Simulated scan of single mutants.
Amino acid sequence: MKKLLLKALTVAGLAAAANAYAITDAANDFLSVYTGSHDAAFDVLSADVAYNAASNEFVFRTTAAGPISGVAGAAYVFGLDVGGSTNAPFASVGLPGVTFNSTVTLRADGTGSIGANAVTTHIVGNQIFSTVSAALLPSKGLAFKDYTWTVWSIDNRVQGLGRLADFAPDANITVSAVPEADSYAMLLAGLGMLGMVARRRSRKTV
């Protein structure tokens, strides 16, 4: 009974998380300039950056086409425009819409950083994510909720533009908002219904 309920809740939770991604990206769409490993961990399939006003935190998430943990050289760089002047260093490879003046890097070895500051990084299968205090990403003119972002995977064993594996999206988008309380209530109601179904099944098998 407990195993059945746990499985149902896990599936529901994963489905809700998957649906929360801001963008999805085509598989096997490595940049033509990329000269690094073509391991599936470098192929970004979906990503999201969300801002939680209640906790004043950002959540960074990326899903790759294959397992991430321990893949040599794999890292995921979130570029953010936090206001003020930005640069567009990837215009030469056809990505003039990627602009940023702050970055968050999550690595397949389980480490992460914002400048000199280490951030806690989690890896589950082909997903890597981190929750970061907004204090580590100070504004240069934009409200936190108006920051824009994109993410790219790199093989950090390669130098220059040849390290750029995959971008998602190919131009900046605005951060997502963490779901409001009513959305959470709907999710909890759904999980409660799953629990009821599991209990009824258990009674029938007794």
Rank of each mutant, 00 (worst) to 15 (best):
M1W: 13
K2S: 08
L9Q: 14
A12G: 05
A15N: 07
A16W: 09
A17P: 00
Y21K: 08
Y21D: 13
D25H: 11
F30D: 02
V33G: 02
T35P: 05
D39W: 02
A40L: 14
D48F: 00
A50D: 08
A54F: 06
F58A: 07
T62Y: 00
A72W: 00
Y76Q: 06
F78R: 03
L80Q: 03
G83L: 10
S85E: 15
T86A: 14
T86K: 10
T99P: 02
T99N: 14
N101F: 13
L106E: 06
D109M: 05
G110A: 12
G112V: 03
A116L: 12
A118K: 11
V119D: 04
T121P: 00
I123E: 08
I128H: 02
F129W: 09
S130M: 02
A134W: 03
A135E: 10
L137Y: 03
L137C: 11
K145I: 12
W152T: 00
I154V: 15
V158P: 01
D166L: 04
A168P: 07
N172T: 13
I173Q: 05
I173N: 01
V178W: 01
E180R: 11
A181W: 08
S183T: 02
L187R: 05
L187W: 08
L187H: 06
M193T: 13
L194Q: 11
S202R: 13
R203F: 14
T205F: 13
